[in-house]
Design a protein around this nucleic acid. Structure first.
Lengths: 225, 225
DNA sequence: CTACTATTCAAACGTTCGTTTGAATTATTT
DNA sequence: AAATAATTCAAACGAACGTTTGAATAGTAG
């Protein structure tokens, strides 16, 4: 029985998507050629255009494949939390944990190429190409709305504008942390086993972000409000 | 007197660098062609290779032009602060302010193209191309070392490893905030005048980051230490 | 003015890009 | 087994890429 014999129906699509995640993460969208991509995936050069239509459509399919379930999981975590609380307001730290846990689960799943995608996603937040950023924003919107409302209920005394900024800071830290886990080495050599312990990283992040969210308002900001 | 008559000696170099900052920020390094760049700058296609040698050398010159003085200013702010304190430990918030103030001054300086560079810099932290990341890391290293030591003195009771991570989070938030100030609109429509008030943004950031740095250690992390 | 250097210019270099094509092959259906 | 649809393949397409070239121009020094 050859490898080919057990090849599932749409393995070509899947192989392209998996390799694309890895290469786009390593070299960026424009830095990854179709020739490199298809040869790494072991498929014909024309396969991407046949199965997806174009390079940009491949990028779109790549994000949809992971982001749709990831954001559904985020909303699911929030539903679970709110059911448990039965009307009581959530603690900010619990909201943060609920939000980042799907990412962390994806990072931990070494079998699938989830880690590649999570790092790619972090990079794409600051992607220059507007089409890609717009797609991400659109795919994120439903989960974003739910969490924004939840944070507003959790922190009822914080001025709305300040809260918006703090949520923005929070997403920034999350995106950067996932995208650039290797950059931490620039600050200090740190044990690689720690770097890859997603649960410990999630705890560090949650502690940092929850404190930031709850920070006292500076006098300058109070005056501006 | 034509415009050309008052053209300084090396205006071509400067014009190329200024336009490159803007276009690289908008379209990325690979997404910006030499033909677009030189035509926008009003110089000949061959000018970049004549004055800089290659596209990559232009990128390097671009970062050196801004990063060297910016990091010198960062170290200067730290020197000033430590002189004032005369041996007493600094407050984390003051260290944060000292670190981000040169960025903010650059953002506020609308005359020069500093804002373009600051946003480009934020993007480049997560730039796939390793050569560029390595250059940034190298140019940052001296200021980074000084600030890391200062934070260690300011927070003597925090485990080193936890502190390294929190500094990492801090740089992430800073980079993302500078790179993606428009992304905050995805969370909530916010007044553009606010978005561009660098001083208010700096205060918001400082409050958020100082609280995050000082966050209590979670029980999970204490056990790991 | 002359000789020399520095810069600008239009044109072309070879390479690589994303995409298309039409035939060959494989899979599915009748 | 024949017919039809789906997929793969090698080859080529035109366009755009970064870079190079050698002549033309501008600026400077003797």
């Amino acid at each position: 029985m050859t490898l080919r014999a057990v090849k599932p129906q749409h393995e070509t699509r899947t192989r392209i998507l998996d390799v694309a995640e890895e290469l786009f993460m390593q070299h960026g969208f424009e830095g990854t050629s179709m020739r490199l991509l298809t040869s790494r995936a072991g498929v014909n050069l024309a396969a991407v255009n046949y199965h997806f239509g174009s390079k940009h459509a491949l990028i779109e399919a790549l994000f949809r494949r992971r982001l749709d379930p990831m954001n559904a999981a985020r909303i699911g975590e929030l539903d679970k939390l709110e059911t448990e609380l039965a009307g009581r307001p959530a603690a900010p730290a619990d909201l943060i944990r609920a939000f980042i846990s799907p990412s962390m689960r994806m990072v931990e799943d070494a079998r699938a190429g989830g880690r590649n995608f999570v790092r790619l996603l972090g990079r794409t937040y600051t992607e220059p190409a507007k089409q890609v950023r717009a797609l991400i924003g659109q795919l994120y919107a439903p989960a974003m709305e739910r969490y924004k409302a939840a944070f507003e209920r959790a922190l009822p005394n914080m001025p709305r504008e300040e809260l918006v900024w703090r949520i923005h800071f929070m997403f920034g830290t999350l995106a950067y942390t996932l995208a650039a886990t290797d950059t931490v080495q620039l600050i200090a050599g740190c044990k690689p086993e720690d770097r890859h312990d997603a649960r410990l990283l999630a705890e560090r992040l949650t502690a940092f972000l929850a404190a930031g969210l709850n920070a006292p308002l500076s006098s300058t900001i109070k005056k501006a409000a």
